[in-house]
Computed example of a mutant assay.
Amino acid sequence: MIPESADVVVVGAGPVGLAVAAGLRLHGHSVAVIDKQAEGANTSRACVIHPRTLEMLDEIGVTKRLVDEGLELEEFAVRDADRRLIPVGFADLPTKYPFITMIPQSSTERILLNRLEELGGSILRPYSAAAVTQTADGAEVTLDSGDVIKARYVVAADGMNSTVRELAGLKMPGNTLQLSCSLFDIRVDGGLPLDEVALYFSNAGLLVVAPLPDGTFRIVAETPDAPEHPDAAYAQQMLVSRGPRKTQPKVTEVVWGSRFRIHERVADQYRAGRVVLAGDAAHTHSPAGGQGMNLGLRDAVTLAAALASALTHGDEADLDAYATNSRAEAVRVIGLAHRLTRLANLPRPLRQVRNTIVGLAGRQEKVQVKFAKQLAGFPER
C-alpha cells in the first residue's frame, strides 16, 4: 500500500537507495522506497567492496554479513602479462578491514534489503517518479500511478539517467569516452589466481580479472567494440591477448555478460532544496579501480545520517556538508579512475614505455602504500 506521506522518499532500490533507507530506518524515520523494476536485479554487476566502505557500512549493521558471504582478498596488482608492475597489499592498512571483499552486487542488494526489512522498511514496486514538486516544508512526489507521497526530503538514487535529478533541475555534465566496457563472469579450467585482483596494462588494452566467491571470475575489458553478449570465444581472446601468459587459462563458460559505455560525469550540485542526489545519480566514471558502487554506498551512509539530523533537529548543516564533501570525494575518485583509464589507453607505441615507467615507480613502497590507500578509500589516513 502506497503511503500518503513519509519523512523521506527514496527513488531507486539499488544498493545506494537501500543503504540510505536502512540508515534512515535505523534512526527511526519513516521512508518510502520506490523502484521502477518489478523485482530486484539478479546479475552480479559491481562486485568489490573496499575497506573504507566496509567501515561505513558497519554503521547500518551489514558489514559482517557482507564479509561472511564474500571473498576476502588482501592483494591487488597492476600487471603486464605475468609481471607485476605495482603490487598493492591491503593487509597493513590502518583499518579494521584490511582487505577488499569480492561479492556480487545481487548479494549486496539482498543483504541490504534484508536489513531494511528487519528495520521495518520495504520497497514499493513497480513505480516511477513522474513529478516532484517542492513545497514550503517539503516535497510531493507524484508516481506514474497517479498516487502522491508527501515527504520532507526526496533522495534521487535512480541511476545515471536519473529522472528525479532532471525534475529537480540539477545538471550532471561531463564526457562520454570513445570506449565501451565488456563485463562478464566466466568459469575457467585453472590458470587464474584465486587470491588477487589483477589490473592488466597490456598492449591490447585494459583488462581486470577478479575472483568471486562462487569460483567464477569477473572480467572487465575496455574496448571500442564490446559485444552485447560476449561468448566463450570472445572471453578467451581477451585473456589470451591481455592476461597471463604462462598459466594459459581456458574459458569453459560465460555465466553472464553485458556491455556499457564509459561516462565521466559529476553533478554540479548534490542538492536542490528538498531533493538530494546520491550514487550514480550524482556521479559516474570508468570502472578502473572498482570505485563506483563504493562511492555510492559511502554517499548513502553519510546522507542517511545527515537527513536524520535535519529531520530530528531541523538543522541542515550536515546536509549541506554532505552535498559539499561528497561531491569533492567524487571528483577525487573520478580523477583516480580517469588516470587509470588514460594510462591503460595510451597510444600503442607508448604502452611498453608506460609499463617500464610504471614498473620502476611500482618498486617504491611509498607508491604501493599510496595506491593502496587511494583504492581503499582513505588517501589521507
Results as ranks from 00 to 15, higher is better:
residue 308 A to S: 15
residue 318 D to Q: 13
residue 307 L to K: 11
residue 340 L to K: 08
residue 325 N to K: 07
residue 319 L to Y: 07
residue 354 R to Q: 02
residue 344 A to M: 12
residue 308 A to T: 05
residue 348 R to L: 11
residue 326 S to H: 14
residue 353 V to S: 13
residue 282 A to E: 00
residue 338 H to F: 12
residue 321 A to D: 15
residue 345 N to R: 02
residue 280 D to F: 04
residue 281 A to R: 10
residue 356 T to K: 11
residue 289 G to F: 13
residue 303 L to G: 13
residue 330 A to F: 08
residue 302 T to Y: 01
residue 349 P to Y: 11
residue 311 L to N: 09
residue 356 T to Q: 14
residue 285 H to V: 04
residue 331 V to W: 14
residue 283 H to F: 09
residue 291 Q to P: 02
residue 297 L to R: 02
residue 316 E to G: 02
residue 296 G to V: 01
residue 279 G to S: 09
residue 327 R to E: 05
residue 345 N to H: 15
residue 290 G to T: 04
residue 307 L to I: 03
residue 295 L to R: 01
residue 333 V to A: 08
residue 329 E to G: 04
residue 333 V to Q: 04
residue 283 H to W: 06
residue 323 A to N: 10
residue 297 L to M: 14
residue 343 L to Q: 12
residue 332 R to C: 05
residue 326 S to A: 15
residue 356 T to F: 11
residue 311 L to K: 07
residue 288 A to E: 10
residue 282 A to N: 05
residue 292 G to F: 12
residue 299 D to E: 11
residue 330 A to M: 11
residue 278 A to F: 02
residue 290 G to E: 05
residue 287 P to T: 02
residue 308 A to W: 06
residue 317 A to K: 10
residue 324 T to K: 13
residue 323 A to F: 07
residue 328 A to W: 09
residue 336 L to N: 14
residue 297 L to W: 08
residue 300 A to F: 11
residue 289 G to P: 06
residue 349 P to N: 08
residue 327 R to K: 15
residue 328 A to E: 14
residue 306 A to S: 13
residue 347 P to D: 08
residue 320 D to G: 08
residue 340 L to I: 06
residue 311 L to Y: 06
residue 314 G to T: 00
residue 290 G to S: 05
residue 342 R to A: 11
residue 307 L to H: 11
residue 336 L to K: 09
residue 290 G to Q: 04
residue 278 A to H: 05
residue 305 A to M: 07
residue 349 P to S: 06
residue 341 T to P: 04
residue 340 L to H: 12
residue 321 A to S: 12
residue 283 H to M: 10
residue 290 G to F: 07
residue 344 A to V: 03
residue 280 D to I: 02
residue 325 N to Y: 06
residue 333 V to K: 02
residue 335 G to Y: 13
residue 349 P to Q: 09
residue 339 R to E: 08
residue 297 L to F: 10
residue 314 G to I: 00
residue 355 N to K: 07
residue 304 A to W: 08
residue 315 D to I: 00
residue 302 T to G: 10
residue 298 R to Q: 15
residue 319 L to E: 09
residue 310 A to D: 08
residue 308 A to N: 08
residue 355 N to R: 07
residue 290 G to I: 03
residue 341 T to L: 13
residue 331 V to Y: 14
residue 347 P to I: 00
residue 288 A to M: 15
residue 305 A to F: 09
residue 332 R to Q: 15
residue 353 V to F: 12
residue 328 A to I: 04
residue 293 M to Y: 10
residue 343 L to M: 15
residue 333 V to N: 03
residue 286 S to I: 01
residue 296 G to R: 02
residue 295 L to H: 04
residue 342 R to Y: 03
residue 327 R to T: 05
residue 291 Q to D: 05
residue 314 G to Q: 08
residue 331 V to I: 15
residue 288 A to T: 11
residue 286 S to K: 01
residue 320 D to E: 15
residue 316 E to K: 06
residue 306 A to T: 04
residue 342 R to D: 03
residue 298 R to M: 14
residue 308 A to R: 01
residue 354 R to N: 03
residue 310 A to L: 00
residue 286 S to M: 03
residue 297 L to T: 02
residue 279 G to R: 07
residue 289 G to Y: 14
residue 298 R to P: 06
residue 282 A to P: 08
residue 348 R to M: 07
residue 329 E to W: 13
